[in-house]
Design a binder for these strands. Structure first.
Lengths: 111, 111
DNA sequence: CTAATGCATTAGTGCCCACTAATTGATTGA
DNA sequence: TCAATCAATTAGTGGGCACTAATGCATTAG
């Protein structure tokens, strides 16, 4: 139960749990590429905050960057969501089994 | 971009972002039903902490409870994951099919 | 009845984190 | 050249959160 190991699921969950940071990811995702200045516009927070969020998202493997001139363009890295998908999908297996058991049971009762 | 509204996605993400609390959820899920005392055993934290985590999970719609005598038995509420699955379904382009199956399952479970 | 067990809740504490303001370095425009 | 723009980073701050210790309330056992 002692989980000191920095789990990738935890990293992704933590990165996306914050509404502001998740909104940044969503905007990056919806744009093919987007600069920091453009992300800052209408974000309600300062440019520094946006840069910090982008750093977190990058460390979580959720975004990638490309520098061009004095701009830095970010793009989404959807593969970064894989740990999350795997975690959730794990429960899908259980549900599947339970449903199957339930169906089997129903068939026995009402053949 | 100002997101003051307490989003259900945020609620679920936040609830599951903490490793200890997520471990509690996983143990609740793996057991059909489990008491607080049993959850506390081997959790590495006090009983009070477990109760607090269960309260958070309950408010996020991820667990439900059943009192019996002086025990309270918790069980998983899989439908609580629906906001998360829906969100990933939108952004996790690679795994949309996997998740679509999972969403169908959730609908079957929670009629 | 009395002691013990199960659970929730509270107050208190330390820590982490989201944010700002300011600075710095780099690049571009006039 | 000099000013302006873009982005990252830093120090500092407030607030929230995970946790403990302790208390209270039921319920059960002896």
């Amino acid at each position: 139960m002692i989980e000191a190991a920095p789990n990738p699921v935890t990293a992704v969950m933590r990165a996306l749990a914050d509404p502001t940071r998740r909104a940044v990811f969503e905007r990056v995702f919806d744009s093919k590429e987007i600069s920091v200045a453009e992300l800052t516009r209408g974000s309600g927070v300062t440019q520094g905050a946006i840069s910090q969020h982008l750093k977190s998202l990058k460390q979580a493997g959720l975004v990638a960057e490309r520098a061009e001139g004095r701009n830095v363009y970010y793009r989404a890295a959807p593969q970064g969501l894989e740990p999350l998908v795997t975690w959730i999908d794990h429960y899908g297996v259980f549900w599947r089994e339970r449903l199957q058991n339930l169906r089997d049971l129903l068939k026995e009762i009402d053949p």
